[in-house]
Design a protein around this nucleic acid. Structure first.
Length: 822
DNA sequence: TAGCTAAGGGTTTTT
DNA sequence: CCCTTAGCTA
């Protein structure tokens, strides 16, 4: 579809590059990508093709060959994890400190830019960042204040609306609202913005949007950064949203007649087949737009896979080939076919889990797999429960990814709220969070009075306490006084001392000491102190910026040599911190206009908001890894189980609603499959407990899209058809031992329906229509389907029927003609 | 104001 | 089925 132009007509690669040990062991595709000549380029990096290696090696190569200086490079990633990995690999390759370089997440870099130019951006110097929780509570507060009907406008929905608008680059004034509902939402969006400005806070979307607007509207700043960043590298480009792409365009250079014909190079690295975040605003279309708008001539495909055996890759390739509008890519390996992909059909989710456990036991005992190299992946979190309990009962250590992260925990948020109030008493979100925690006898009524007072005088809650009379007012003033005392007490103390004092004096520690489940929370509060401590040392606080270690001096001199600086507008008061001697990330906290630095506490609060911390629970030793398919992206394991590969679940029924939903589900399956190095299991279950009721699922259509030659069905033959003895609730678990002797490409559980219809749940009264959950029925339009549930009686009776390809539908039995199939 | 009970709602998720 | 939240009562 697009011309693949491998280095043809390109500038000669500097000689030094060939001699460089950096480039050793790169394959042809990788080498081409690493040594791309200046100019915009797209690298289509397949799963397991060494994408991160290419990115980091490219940066190192640019620096080593003198084509770039550290200050002229910007590398953007999506997650902190990816940014950290890039930094770690780079610092291993380069002889100097890389922390001053502009390598980070979109939000991290926007934050850095806004800190440096807070005045131009119209922000207070020490603006705080709202995470999603904070944002929601801010919206709830606002809705209460302005009597917004939370039935018609649920705060969550308003939050999605506002975040969505910002991701599209839209301010309230940019939205064309015709219907009254949208008009109201825009009005609330406007009020929310005013509230944020009053309180001196920004949400995640605001970081991005404000930074974009700053570049768009300030020609000097824009030109400065455009001249500076000669090399822009973007990771996971398929996950960028509209605003992020626009932001990149501002940095990329001068738009001439709709084209980005600047001297800088934008290298976008991504994989359209692994785009799984459309639901949160990611636009795969940015890849095609990038090719068109930047007139990309250099496209390189990294298709050599270093992860999996070919049976696994054949499955992945075959599956994804069913998608349309792909940029086109086929993974290959030199590793040979390896083992077949095993497919298992279970009678129930319980049996599926218990089969997994047996199989895992075998893998560890007989096949030499380590537990931490075994992953169980699932489409939705709800599936983890059965698997967890099966693993738990078998005493197999496991670790579940996802859930609350460290800085999102309630006790941590409470402590942070106190800390934020020390910095900014007008932070009403933080005020509300802790004004009555631990309990101080300040209840809803008092808060209402306070909010009324604050609104009528247009001030913050903290300033309004004197306006509330009576004992309520006394209590409120007591709280504010307590914060003031804390601020006084912690003046000039180290970060560690500040946090310890706050945790103790606020009464948080005491409160959790009296709570029965409080021990963990106290431990976390102590962990917060530790986290702050390592933040201070790692990030370079407390060090004398003048006494730079040798590596940093080298880095500094390199940075100062930057030829880019000559092109910069010296009349601008701005100075990029990376052009000055770097002091770790602290440098990013230097305010370029005034030279002021954020205090360690301020910087730590920014860090806490921007990086929610580890996403994984107890870092147990050698544990089986459990996670959603989404969470598995970017990871790899020796053995992978993908459970619940069923219609309605994977592909998920809700995903089928929106356009392109099925294709995103398929990409999701593609991501899941390509996680496996050696062994891959796909399983589906005939019955599954969901929302308290048993559902009958047919196996996923994705099975039909896999190549038979690479598969092996391992469902054991049952003694007769008694698997579904009517009214029997429990199904025995199957031992994996010897199960494979039944495996064949066309055998049990394959293309043919093996098991009889599911059992009919026992019912007290038989409805007259004769439709019952579990029955197989026929519909003139949708064909054969399975009844999942029946509701109501008489003319109101309706049934939920899963029609496979046509999805799951609710049908009124008085209207729809359903006939029962044997 | 705090603690309990009923009701509602339940893809996927990073910053 | 199970968790979160809202509303109600002591």
């Amino acid at each position: 579809m697009f011309p693949l132009d491998l280095l043809s007509g390109s500038a000669p690669v500097p000689d030094a590059a060939h001699a460089s040990p950096l480039l050793a062991h790169l394959n042809e595709e990788q080498l081409a990508a690493v040594t791309l000549p200046a100019g915009h380029a797209l690298i289509l990096a397949g799963a397991g093709s060494g994408k991160t290696r290419v990115l980091t090696t490219r940066i190192a190569w640019l620096l080593q060959t003198g084509q770039a200086t550290p200050g002229s490079i910007m590398a953007v990633t999506f997650t902190n994890k990816a940014a950290k990995e890039m930094l770690a690999r780079l610092s291993a390759m380069l002889p100097y400190n890389v922390r001053g370089m502009w390598i980070g997440t979109f939000h991290g870099l926007c934050n850095r830019m806004l800190r440096a130019h807070y005045q131009a951006a119209g922000l207070p110097q020490a603006f705080q960042i709202l995470d999603t929780q904070d944002q929601l509570s801010a919206i709830k507060r606002l809705c209460k204040q302005f009597n917004v009907d939370d039935e018609r406008f649920p705060p969550k929905q308003l939050m999605y609306f506002i975040a969505g608008c910002k991701e599209e680059g839209k301010r309230p004034g940019d939205i064309e609202a015709i219907d009254p509902d949208t008009k109201k939402k825009v009005e609330i969006y406007q009020l929310y913005e005013e509230q944020c400005r009053r309180e001196g806070v920004v949400d995640f979307g605001e970081l991005m949007l404000r930074s974009y607007e700053l570049l768009r509207d300030d020609v000097h700043l824009r030109q400065h950064y455009q001249r500076r960043f000669q090399h822009i590298l973007v990771d996971e480009f398929q996950d960028t949203n509209k605003l992020q792409y626009q932001w990149l365009k501002q940095l990329a250079g001068n738009e001439v007649g709709g084209r980005y014909a600047s001297s800088s190079s934008v290298i976008a690295v991504g994989d359209d087949d692994q785009s799984i975040y459309a639901f949160r605003g990611a636009r795969v279309g940015n890849m095609a737009d990038f090719i068109r708008e930047f007139e990309v001539r250099q496209q390189i495909k990294l298709e050599q896979n270093y992860r999996s055996y070919s049976n696994i890759l054949d499955c992945a390739n075959a599956l994804i080939s069913h998608n349309s509008n792909r940029l086109g890519k086929n993974l290959r390996t030199t590793q040979g076919p390896g083992e077949p992909v095993r497919i298992y059909e279970a009678p129930s989710d319980l049996a599926e889990a218990s089969w997994m456990v047996d199989e895992i036991k075998q893998l560890v005992k007989n096949d030499g797999f380590t537990r931490q190299e075994i992953a169980v992946l699932y489409r939705s979190n709800a599936q983890s429960r059965v698997i967890e309990s099966a693993l738990f009962n078998a005493a197999i250590p496991y670790r579940v990814y996802g859930g609350l992260r460290f800085f999102e925990r309630a006790e941590i948020k409470h402590a942070l709220a106190y800390l934020r109030l020390l910095e900014n008493p007008h932070d009403d979100t933080s005020f509300m969070r802790v004004v009555n925690f631990p309990a101080r006898g300040i209840g809803a009524r008092t808060i209402e009075l306070l909010q009324d007072a604050a609104r009528s005088s247009g001030c913050s809650l903290s300033d309004a306490v004197t306006a509330v009379g009576g004992s309520a007012g006394t209590k409120l003033q007591g709280f504010v006084a307590q914060i003031d005392v804390l601020r006084e007490q912690t003046q000039g103390r180290t970060l560690r001392e500040i946090i310890e004092t706050v945790e103790e004096q606020s009464g948080l520690i005491e409160h959790y000491r009296n709570e029965k489940e409080g021990a963990d929370r106290i431990e976390n509060l102590q962990e917060l102190v530790t986290a702050a401590e390592s933040f201070v040392t790692q990030e370079g606080f407390g060090r004398d910026a003048v006494a730079l270690p040798l590596d940093e001096q080298q880095g500094a001199s390199l940075l100062n040599q930057s030829p880019v600086s000559q092109g910069l507008d010296s009349n601008l008061p701005l100075l990029d911190e990376a052009l000055k001697p770097p002091v770790g990330t602290v440098a990013s906290m230097v305010n370029a206009d005034t030279g002021e630095t954020l205090s360690p506490l301020q910087a730590f609060l920014v860090h806490a908001a921007l990086e929610a911390g580890d996403n994984q629970a107890q870092a147990g030793q050698d544990a089986v890894q459990l996670m959603t398919v989404h969470a598995s992206k970017g990871l790899e394991f020796d053995a992978v189980f993908i459970g619940g590969v069923e219609e309605g679940l994977f592909p998920h029924e809700n995903a089928m609603m929106d356009r392109g939903g099925l294709e995103e589900e398929r990409r999701l399956a593609y991501v899941a499959i390509t996680r496996a190095r050696q062994r891959l299991y796909l399983s589906h279950s005939q019955t599954r407990m969901l929302h308290g009721q048993t559902r009958y699922n047919v196996k996923s259509r994705f099975f039909d899209e896999l190549p038979e030659e690479a598969l092996k069905w391992i469902t054991p033959r049952q003694s007769g058809f008694g698997t579904f003895a009517p009214n029997s609730g429990a199904y025995g678990a199957y031992g994996a031992k010897g199960s494979e002797q039944f495996g064949s490409n066309s055998g049990w559980g394959g293309k043919s329906e093996v098991f009889a219809s599911p059992p009919v749940p026992q019912q007290k009264a038989q409805p007259s229509h004769g439709i019952k959950a579990g029955l197989k029925v026929f519909h003139n339009k949708f064909g054969e389907g399975k009844v999942l549930a029946v509701e109501g009686t008489g003319d109101d009776a309706r049934a939920q029927v899963s029609f496979g390809r046509h999805g799951t539908k609710w049908l009124a039995l008085s209207i729809a003609k359903l006939t029962v199939v044997d």
